[in-house]
Amino acid sequence: MNLRPVLDEIVRASVDVTAATVGWLLMVDGDELVVVAAAGGDSPGDRLGRRLPVAGAAGLVVSAGEPTSIESPPGDTSNVGAGGLDGNPAAVLAAPCGDEDIVGVLEVASPEGGSPFTIDDIEEVTLLARVAGAALEEMDEVNAVPTPEQLSRELSRLAADNPARYASIARVIDSVLGQG
């Protein structure tokens, strides 16, 4: 099964649901991060395959295994390039992909002058990152799908809490099912 459309849809959903400008999915490869999916901005496809050092918000998340949301003041250069923005983002949100081992990072960013991310944004991107993690862990194996039981539980909770959130996640599930 080709998981590329699933990964693309996860990043697109992350950007849409958080009202970010751009997003990307980074996979751990040795001591570097590689862009495996991107959305938003100009020509997101051009960012695929780019290799990055373990640095900035994405580096922190892949090292510590915890989601993080950072609102940078003007002049902060620690996240230049985050989410594929050419300039310096005003806000960055990154969440770990993977369960016991962190295999990647899902990152979204807002440009200078953009809004900071909320607690709800963190929760939603974290959930999408879990789906992405399941896909990344199984990239080399043909029959990979996210853990159905975990997914079902999370979706039920989201649907009960907030139907709008369910809709955003459901897009990703549709994409997964479309690959089956």
């Binding site: 915890e66 989601p67 993080t68 949301s69 609102e71 003041p73 607690i119």
Partner: peptide, 8 residues
């Protein structure tokens, strides 16, 4: 520098 951030 100084930033604003959220988390446990």
């Amino acid at each position: 520098q100084t930033i604003r951030s959220t988390g446990n």
